[in-house]
């Protein structure tokens, strides 16, 4: 039995998995675990430097890029058993002689890994949705704005989730701070620094009150569906959303607001005002349908 301790990154896993596979070590003989201390989250600077063993003849050790993508996503999950499960699936597709195993959504290994990957993808999606930037600074000479956000993702998704913000907000500078890692964009480079334990941002944005006005006004109290809201926007995200403080009150008053509408006396129809356009509508022949 071998114990492999890796930095919790996809790159670190891939490097070791490749070695083990070439050596022909079956998955039951490997125990994987995360390095307890994380000297650096980002592989690029401290990539494992063990030399690559020479490729050996034997069964093809190639796997599809779909599997590599799946593995990259799964690596961001925090379940301790993910490295072992990924290696097992890698083994089965190559030395195990089951190249088609990914097509089997009914296979427990596949099912498990797709479940993890799905949770990570959802977390990334929610990060794209729920990050809220606050204006921190405006450069006096260039007018270029600098925004900061605090977000608490469930998994280690910062490197996977932030390229999206780079594309979307290329023309402004920004930082997204999280407990796992922080991402910074300066118009040309996206770089990462270690995570911060607490939200250091104290002031709310001057636009937040206007955003709350919008949130309050776009809500229709006659169609309350609290469950539907919460399944898409679970409470764990609320504390970092400037609009969420309104939710309780909006729910509490919806019934009486609806009743008020039902109790309102109906308004009579007013005749059409004099207007050339309205007159022309009446004369316009209906087109053939």
């Amino acid at each position: 039995m071998r114990t492999i301790v890796i930095e919790p990154t996809f790159e670190a896993w891939r490097g070791r998995a490749r070695e083990l596979l070439l050596e022909g070590v079956p998955p039951e003989q490997v125990l994987w675990s995360d390095e307890a201390e994380e000297p650096c989250l980002f592989g690029a600077e401290t990539a494992p430097s063990s030399p690559r063993p020479p490729a050996s003849a034997g069964p093809s050790l190639k796997v599809s890029s779909a599997f590599m993508d799946l593995a990259r996503t799964t690596a961001a999950h925090t379940a301790a058993s993910r490295w072992g499960a990924l290696y097992r699936l890698l083994w089965r597709q190559t030395r195990g002689g089951e190249p088609h195993v990914l097509a089997l959504a009914t296979d427990p290994d596949v099912r498990q890994i797709q479940g993890w990957a799905g949770a990570v993808r959802r977390d990334i999606h929610k990060m794209h949705a729920f990050v809220r930037f606050r204006l921190a600074d405006t450069d006096e000479t260039t007018g270029r704005e600098y925004f900061v956000a605090w977000f608490e993702p469930e998994y280690r998704i910062v490197p996977l989730a932030t390229p999206f913000f780079k594309k979307r907000f290329a023309s402004m500078d920004w930082s997204i701070l999280t407990p796992h890692a922080c991402a910074h964009w300066n118009g040309t480079h996206l770089h990462f620094t270690p995570g911060q334990p607490h939200n250091p941002i104290v002031k709310e944005d001057t636009l937040d009150p206007l955003w709350r006005t919008y949130f309050r006004s776009i809500f229709n109290p006659a169609r309350l569906k609290v469950q539907a809201m919460q399944s898409e926007m679970p409470k764990k995200y609320w504390k970092n959303l400037p609009e969420a403080s309104l939710i309780q009150e909006m729910i509490a008053t919806s019934q009486s607001r609806m009743q008020e509408m039902l109790d309102t006396e109906a308004r009579p129809a007013r005749p059409a005002p004099r207007n050339a356009y309205l007159d022309s509508l009446r004369q316009r022949p209906a087109p053939e349908s």
Binding site: P221, R223, K225, L241
Partner: peptide, 11 residues
């Protein structure tokens, strides 16, 4: 992307 949800369940 739905950036928020109101209590009517709408995106």
């Amino acid at each position: 992307i739905c950036h928020s949800y109101t209590p009517d369940g709408r995106c």
